[in-house]
């Protein structure tokens, strides 16, 4: 009897340690970035585990830097525009793919899935030419255009999955009421798709916000950059020393909104990820 109890306690402790390990593994790096962001000067070079004093000078210097704030605006603009474009094209396509049985449907789905697998670098030179031709080089609009390559396929993919789950009778009721496919989509389905659209939009937003390769290649000057590029290229006073304090403050600034979004919408995100099994 005693041994059984001991075994139970051991199992419980083991589980608790496992949980603590998982939490430490997932949360610690971000936590440590926050700790670092509140340090300045030589304090930075002493390893500490806690925030001893809230020193906002790193934040002040990052925000005081006009180009970083500009990058945030660029990122916001690019991400929102990308989401809106992906939604606009994705919703109509998802209706066709999810609700209409037609020949060539699975071929279209294959194309969509195929494009989502494209290595970005494989279209880099071709896209560069297109962007040059459209005179969009070093312009955030170039990013809106190019981000569609990865946001549109997975938007179509996830929205199609959700569109399929809507009851068939609802559409038939609309048909009997005399609604055209366009009316059915806009008056009946889209109002019911808000949760799915929020999920998909959030995933597209995060993907666009985090994108690096295109942003690095298609922009040139500080004032046109997005946040990831700005952080990657952030340099300090001297060429050889990275301004770690500023870097961590900038990292925290751009990540906190995402983390908050994720915590608030975690259920939606999980359902979206599993619905499409797409890359995050």
């Amino acid at each position: 009897m005693n041994r059984k109890l001991l075994k139970k306690i051991a199992a419980k402790t083991g589980f608790a340690i496992l949980l603590a390990g998982i939490l430490l593994f997932t949360v610690f790096p971000f936590y440590y970035a926050i700790v670092t962001s509140f340090k300045s000067g030589s304090e930075l070079f002493d390893v500490t585990w806690w925030v001893s004093a809230f020193d906002f000078s790193n934040y002040a210097s990052v925000i005081g830097d006009g180009s970083f704030v500009g990058s945030i605006w660029n990122s916001v603009l690019v991400s929102f525009a990308t989401v809106i474009i992906a939604m606009a094209f994705g919703l109509t396509a998802a209706y066709a793919l999810g609700r209409v049985q037609f020949r060539g449907r699975s071929a279209v789905l294959m194309i969509v899935l195929g494009v989502s697998m494209f290595p970005q670098v494989a279209v880099l030179s071709g896209l560069f030419e297109v962007i040059r031709a459209l005179d969009l080089y070093n312009n955030p609009l170039a990013l809106i255009f190019s981000y569609t390559i990865f946001t549109l396929p997975f938007t179509v993919w996830i929205l199609t999955t959700f569109m399929r789950q809507l009851p068939k009778e609802l559409e038939e009721a609309a048909i009997v009421d005399g609604a055209s496919p366009m009316t059915t989509l806009f008056k009946v389905f889209i109002p019911l798709m808000w949760p799915a659209m929020a999920t998909t939009g959030l995933l597209a937003f995060i993907a666009a916000w985090n994108e690096f390769l295109f942003a690095l290649t298609f922009t040139l000057t500080d004032d046109q950059r997005t946040v990831p590029v700005a952080i990657a290229l952030l340099t300090g006073g001297s060429q050889y020393e990275l301004p770690w304090g500023n870097l961590m403050a900038a990292s925290v600034i751009v990540t906190v909104p995402l983390v908050l979004l994720v915590l608030i919408f975690q259920r939606r995100i999980v359902s979206g990820l599993t619905a499409g099994a797409v890359k995050g």
Binding site: P167, E169, E172, A173, V176, D177, G178, A179, K187
Partner: peptide, 26 residues
Amino acid sequence: VGMVFQSYALYPHMSVYENIAFGLKL
């Protein structure tokens, strides 16, 4: 024709008035 479905298939986001009026508006 008008049709009544087994699962009712009412438009969940519309009020009763809008549900009845939907076909008329179209």
